[in-house]
Design a protein around this nucleic acid. Structure first.
Lengths: 148, 148
DNA sequence: CAGTTTGTTCAGTATTGACTAAACGTTACG
DNA sequence: CGTAACGTTTAGTCAATACTGAACAAACTG
């Protein structure tokens, strides 16, 4: 039986799995979010999540790449530690929104096709405008939040 | 070599593949978006995309489920036709935003954990507020657009 | 320099799931 | 009825990839 905390960590794993990321990646993120400690070392993550060091090593690199967590080092300590930074969450949301908006690029490319019938063109342009409006709203939202 | 149109259809396939959906699903959506015809039958899709009828059958069902396309039937014609409706695009965007926001549910559940240290709690609540604000902005955006 | 600690890389395994061909069920029509 | 047209379901194949154990590289320690 899983503790509530473990269950939620598991849920984080499942969530990210839906977005084509390794389940362990989500679990590591969840663990770092829920931990009492300011940051965790690789071996702590390994024992806590009962996964291989190899997995944590690769997954942690991805998370840093996505700017969802940060690496923390300490003088006189060779080990690497990891934490979710407050800014990380904002970056993550921005990334996922950017992902959704990248659909707009596709639509735009489609709208540039030459041999479209007027009906098809109209259909596509409506979608184009919808995404433009959404991009505008989201842009304003992030501009607002980044100020803080 | 692919024609520009075929290339874009392929790009739609790749896009949806990133979101853990079958590539053929994206290609069918792209085809329906770019077609000259008002709607296409199953066999037309099969020959156009060079895929099996079985694939198109299952994928089209999913697309209808996601409300990204609509089934069209005609009296005296047993065949099923499919089209992307103008509203479909809005629904699709709403769905993908909902997906992103479902992350907020996880955060919320995490915030409800009892044995959190104040630091951890603060970290989580900041993310919670961020998502609340985002949900609000998106809600207003969709309310605006649905009026039209 | 040996030995230890830390993290990465690599090969192998196992699972998942996209896609297909073929069989099937259903409805129309002569 | 028999046959044809249409769509769904199912069993099977193949490719992608998450995860692991083990070998490895690099950095510190006595």
């Amino acid at each position: 039986m899983l503790s509530p905390r473990e269950q939620i960590i598991e849920n984080f794993g499942q969530y990210f799995e839906n977005y084509k990321l390794p389940r362990i990646l989500g679990r590591v993120y969840g663990l770092l979010l829920l931990t009492d400690q300011p940051y965790l070392g690789l071996d702590q993550i390994v024992t806590e999540l009962k996964v291989s060091k190899a997995s944590v090593s690769t997954v942690v690199r991805q998370l840093v790449g996505f700017m969802m967590i940060e690496k923390v080092t300490r003088p006189g300590d060779r080990r690497d530690y990891y934490q979710v930074s407050p800014k990380a969450a904002l970056t993550y949301i921005q990334n996922s929104m950017r992902g959704a908006l990248s659909f707009a690029d596709l639509i735009e490319k489609a709208a540039k096709l030459e041999d479209l019938t007027p009906e098809a063109r109209q259909k596509i342009e409506r979608i184009e405008h919808l995404y433009e409006a959404l991009a505008k709203v989201l842009g304003e939202f992030f501009a607002e939040f980044e100020k803080e």
